[in-house]
């Protein structure tokens, strides 16, 4: 009786033993069923390996020269689209995010704004682009509308969360001076969310540029169109050049925006 040793074991992550075993079982059945239901054509993959090798080698050396004017035109078009879409999207997002903040908006406006956000977030940019290209014709305008719309979902959601987190007493103090609603937003709310606002704008600019590279594939203009054309013509060297240009621009944008964000704090 007394020779029972004191044993210490690490506390398990999930306390309930049944739940723990259940979770493990659940995960393994899930993995098994994925494995069973997914048709993977191993033959095709084996064939694909040498083909893939050739394919990858086809990318080298990247060819910036042959289609340089097309690449440049595509890049600039993407940039225009990105800038306009980000500005338009943010301008529309401001009222939406005020409406989607529980502490500011009346119930009716709140649900309306949340609905707008959910709708714009549900569809990936590419799907939206397909439809806008269908409605408005090929070209950068459809791309711009797509990017603006998806900016709203992203921006308004995150900004409204920040508005909901503001320091209440600062806002209350402004209200107690007898300010009207707009003054209250301008003095009590805006200064508090400004750092987040600027950070999100820069972040979204960066995202919009990256997205502009894909919506071109479905006809939304910009560098994506150039990339798509290069693939269609089997000019993989040019495609490689386009990819490298995209990566380097994203790196530059990201670097500058992180520096700007630090400056603004």
């Amino acid at each position: 009786m007394n020779d029972k040793k004191v044993i210490w074991k690490r506390k398990p992550l999930i306390k309930n033993r049944l739940l723990r075993i259940g979770l493990i079982l659940l995960i393994s059945t899930y993995l098994l069923s994925v494995f069973l239901t997914t048709e993977i054509d191993w033959q095709r993959i084996l064939e694909g390996i040498p083909r893939g090798k050739n394919f990858i080698f086809a990318f080298f050396p990247p060819d910036f020269i042959t289609r340089s004017d097309e690449i440049l035109a595509g890049i600039f078009e993407s940039l225009w689209m990105t800038i306009v879409a980000t500005i338009v999207g943010i301008l529309i997002s401001i009222p939406v995010s005020l409406g989607a903040a529980k502490n500011i908006a009346p119930k009716f406006v709140y649900f309306l704004s949340r609905g707008v956000i959910t709708l714009s977030r549900s569809f990936q940019e590419v799907i939206l682009a397909i439809f806008f290209v269908k409605l408005m014709g090929f070209g950068p305008f459809a791309g711009m509308v797509t990017l603006s719309l998806s900016t709203i979902g992203f921006f308004a959601k995150l900004l409204s969360e920040d508005i909901e987190d503001i320091n209440k007493s600062q806002a209350e103090a402004i209200k107690s001076t007898g300010s009207n609603w707009f003054q209250w937003v301008n003095y009590g709310v805006q200064p508090q969310v400004m750092p987040r606002f600027i950070g999100l704008s820069l972040y979204r600019l960066d995202i919009n540029f990256r997205e502009s590279a894909v919506i071109g594939i479905v006809g939304g203009g910009g560098i994506g169109s150039t990339l798509n054309t290069a693939f269609d013509r089997y000019e993989f060297e040019t495609a490689a050049a386009v990819l490298i240009v995209i990566i380097s621009i994203v790196m530059i944008v990201e670097y500058t925006s992180s520096h700007l964000r630090k400056l603004i704090k």
Binding site: G52, R210, V214, I217, I247, V250
Partner: peptide
């Protein structure tokens, strides 16, 4: 990290379909 981030998943998919063939994989 940056190169993985800058290339959208659709473009990754475009490349991979050419390598491993179309499908879930």
């Amino acid at each position: 990290i940056v190169s993985s981030r800058s290339i959208n998943s659709v473009i990754w998919a475009l490349l991979l379909v050419a390598v491993v063939g179309p499908g879930v994989l």
